[in-house]
Design a protein around this nucleic acid. Sequence first.
DNA 1: TTGAAAGCGCTAACAT
DNA 2: ATGTTAGCGCTTTCAA
Lengths: 334, 334
Amino acid sequence: MQRVTMMDVAKLAQVSPSTVSLYLRKPAAVSAAAGQEIARAISTLGYVPNLVAGGLAAASSKVVSIIVPSIRNAFFAETVSTLQSELAAEGLQVLLGHSEYGEDQEEALVRTALSWAPAAVVLTGLSHSAETRKLLQASGVPVVEMWELGGKPIDMAVGFSHPHVGASAARHLLSKGRRAIVFLGARMQEDHRAEKRASGFAETARMGDVLSYEIINHPGAATVEAGSLLLTRALERIPNLDGIACSNDLIALGVLFECQRRGITVPDDIAVVGFGDLDFSASCIPSLTTIRPSGDLIGREVARLILNSIQGERPEGSARIIDTGHVLIERRST
Amino acid sequence: MQRVTMMDVAKLAQVSPSTVSLYLRKPAAVSAAAGQEIARAISTLGYVPNLVAGGLAAASSKVVSIIVPSIRNAFFAETVSTLQSELAAEGLQVLLGHSEYGEDQEEALVRTALSWAPAAVVLTGLSHSAETRKLLQASGVPVVEMWELGGKPIDMAVGFSHPHVGASAARHLLSKGRRAIVFLGARMQEDHRAEKRASGFAETARMGDVLSYEIINHPGAATVEAGSLLLTRALERIPNLDGIACSNDLIALGVLFECQRRGITVPDDIAVVGFGDLDFSASCIPSLTTIRPSGDLIGREVARLILNSIQGERPEGSARIIDTGHVLIERRST
DNA sequence: TTGAAAGCGCTAACAT
DNA sequence: ATGTTAGCGCTTTCAA
């Protein structure tokens, strides 16, 4: 497949292969004359470096392995997208894997990832199998865990506290005078981060001046449909329900639709706060009060950490943990 | 990084490295006794094959490079997700890149992709720079173009006809007695597929019994917000508007919201048909008539084509083009 | 069925 | 600034 090699370029440019290699990695280290010759040879031959060979020789490839639960989730799609762009700008490729919220699957992905001698590995969350941690630690590869803070990371971490998010949602509902509140989540048996938002919510509710608070889980994925179902369940259990926090804006949208169907007025009858600030959240009816985690920012910070680790000194101490925080955006639904 | 090598395994199992290599690829070709020894050695040493070295020696790596315009787009997220899962099951890794609808960006991505000596390359659509086609053709790597049909593919293609989709939308509106119809699209100056849906729509409208038809483009991304803006523009230009086709369900959702804000009843005043059958489309108010392209199915078929190409004979003739079609799902919005 | 040998194309000391 | 020299860890003929 690979026709032209560095050797061919070297011959045409009348230099040694190592000079070509050097030119490719540090153009400034080569004399202007040689550089010109090499550049010409590269373009006339249409030379494309073989990164596989380079990776083998350098014992580390220009690949960053990213493992997310699911790319269908808009949160992770946003982060992966940003990350990919930032890394591509530095000549790094993204190897993508989906754990589907399974630690065993994640472990298998990490194993294959490591067999690529990646420049870095990015994982989602702080919960991993013991073996996963061991593998990564032993590998010496820079590791960034993203989208969660609050535990001891394997190496570096970029994210925010999910309990804090849940607490913010609860506090916001309380500040609006809501006293019978509920947290609607999906797939929380697997999605530990959603589950932590729920706990933060419950914690704050418990300390607050409420008549009742509850957490309801939908075992399936976080979809609009799930939101409808969850609202139905919630109304059955809490007739005087007046405040809802959702673990995801899709669920919140489903809640809004279901309220509309039932003639429940948002926010007069029930206030709704979501999580994610997705595409539709500002434009739906009523516009959705939500908590923005900024998947974009997470992507940028992860990229920064990785680039620092590779081309320079690895971050130390507190520089290895970056809190991207969260912002509650108040709109019409509360 | 890489500690244990095949050599170590061979030593412990008292065989030669090439026997270990053989065992790893074709366990049946090795004697039961040797196989057992090797298996034991691998597990006691915790050996993980180095795929970089393997890729170099075999002159083709177990990587499939996928290039999509944007992973933030739910359509492509679905396909990539399915594709990744199917390929991972066969030991193939996914290298992801975003072209952001730019042919130059795509070309750069293809270039790097090829430098990994990938097992296959997957592109989105049939429009690419001449250089991109040349690079891929010269490489001899299996190439699959997805999400579009109707031109001559570089190698293989899986998708459907976008003009046909636009035509279906127009026909559907006409069948509902709509006579002043419009196609609302976004980013059509870059998104050729959306633009083709628009042409198919216009073509059918022109032939049909309509009072007026029009295509309106929003230069930005296809978002809910864009849908609101587009409806506003459409109403200014076509006061008697009674039918809308959207290039994306997000736009359609924005249209539904804007109608609600303006007191326009869907479908009585205006019928709306979308494209994508996204998460919310079945549950919004009113539920959205839409055209489902099935990103899932595309992912599965692309995977099948790739696997056939790799581990067997490459598909020939008409087997290299797979039409996944589209389905119009009628719901309340029309 | 197994092993020996020859690279795959490149990088990275080291020497010049 | 440039070239020489060894590999990186594995696959793959080819012989045995």
